[in-house]
Design a protein around this nucleic acid. Structure first.
Lengths: 227, 227
DNA sequence: GACAGTCAGGCTGCATGCAGCTTATCGAGA
DNA sequence: TCTCGATAAGCTGCATGCAGCCTGACTGTC
């Protein structure tokens, strides 16, 4: 990991990294399973990686601590924790309910931008379908979720939706190994359904499509965690 | 733990204040309207008050920043922000839905401890009823909400319930002035209903009682904010 | 060989100083 | 008098050093 000063001058990969950027990066890494339960997030190490001091890293860790996905203990370290089986079930049961609220609380009708974004995701999903990759699947799913969030009119619901998504995503590390092309097909079908719903301007359908998809994922999680 | 009398006279009455304690205190002050929108939470000032440096204060502020009730801007300061009328409506609509989920997602049957706590709150509410005080009302309501949260079995729902409560509570500063004995009566009725439900072991009723109460509060908020 | 005690290494929590940004105030010029 | 620019004060963001707490390894003893 030692880098010569010369190499450091040559390799400044992340310009302008502040606490907010670090927060987003850490959360993304958790969702994309770059960090998995048990991994240690050492402040000094992350500070070196981002080329900053420990302070903004600490700030970022504090800001995402409310999600319950990381725990800092004095003298020990900051580790990514795995939700208990009960917590996982609770999060998924909650997501099923939240999905149904998307169409009921201040629904917004998606525009052409949403449709185009969905088309792009569908293209990527179809491309991946020929050669499945868990990482790609997670990335597409991640972007899809943010897109769905942007279609949620109720700001409070949107916040909780994103929160529950991150918590659920953090549990997929044990599912990722068992994932095959069938989840890719399910993703294609989900995106197709969403595109149809958006084309028809059926905002209410979006939530229910999400509910179906979450239920599907819940089933896979149940198997792995024997809930 | 023993302190010399001299030190006790000099020292502030808050021993062992770390970032977690400051976090709880700040949130409580927001819920109890000690801090209102527009107020500045200066790190240095809070640090002096709690007898610590700016660092744990910063950590506490960062941890509660996800609620959207405070905003820090470089060079300006950290201020308590007022939710927009739309956000307030969204939070309340969300709380109405969350209340209905209490009895559906992993309901837990309250025990004698919950009943006793409710009785104590009812006593305090009845005492206050003879001489109304907005501060006392908010304090009782605050403790009641934490008690309700302890009756929510689904951990994810509990977290979101508390989150939505804090956001709603931060908007009551404009309602507090118009509050009179009638809200005290409503609180007494709510507590009475809750006690009856708990005595009957009717866990499902708790959520619906809450929903009624939230709807009542929503009505008052609507008037003040002309939603 | 087993076990308990000790010590060193490493990590987070906290204190403190500096830099950068923003705003308000004051003064000079038109 | 009004306007605009400079300046100073204050706040947050960041860097850095120290203290306290855990843990794991090592060693001396039984």
């Amino acid at each position: 990991m030692d880098v010569t000063p010369e190499a450091e001058l040559i390799d400044p990969p992340e310009p302008k990294v502040d606490a907010t950027a670090i927060q987003r990066l850490l959360l993304e890494r958790i969702c994309l399973l770059k960090y998995q339960p048990g991994d240690q997030l050492k402040e000094a190490e992350l500070a070196r990686e981002f080329g900053v001091s420990r302070t903004p890293v600490r700030d970022a860790l504090n800001r995402i601590s409310h999600l319950g996905l990381i725990v800092s203990r004095n003298g020990v370290g900051t580790v990514v924790v795995s939700l208990t089986a009960e917590q996982i079930r609770h999060v998924y049961e909650m997501r099923l309910e939240l999905a149904c609220l998307i169409g009921r609380l201040s629904p917004i009708t998606p525009g052409p931008a949403h449709l185009a974004a969905l088309q792009r995701l569908l293209d990527r999903a179809l491309t991946m379908h020929s050669r499945f990759s868990a990482d790609d699947y997670l990335a597409i799913n991640h972007e899809l979720n943010e897109l769905i969030a942007s279609m949620i009119g109720n700001t409070s619901l949107r916040s909780m939706w994103l929160q529950a998504y991150v918590q659920a995503a953090s549990t997929w590390h044990r599912v990722a190994d068992t994932m095959g092309p069938e989840v890719s097909e399910a993703l294609v079908k989900e995106l197709t359904d969403l595109i149809i719903a958006v084309e028809r301007g059926d905002a209410e359908a979006i939530g229910y499509i999400q509910r179906v998809h979450i239920g599907y994922g819940f089933g896979k999680v149940k198997e792995v965690y024997s809930l």
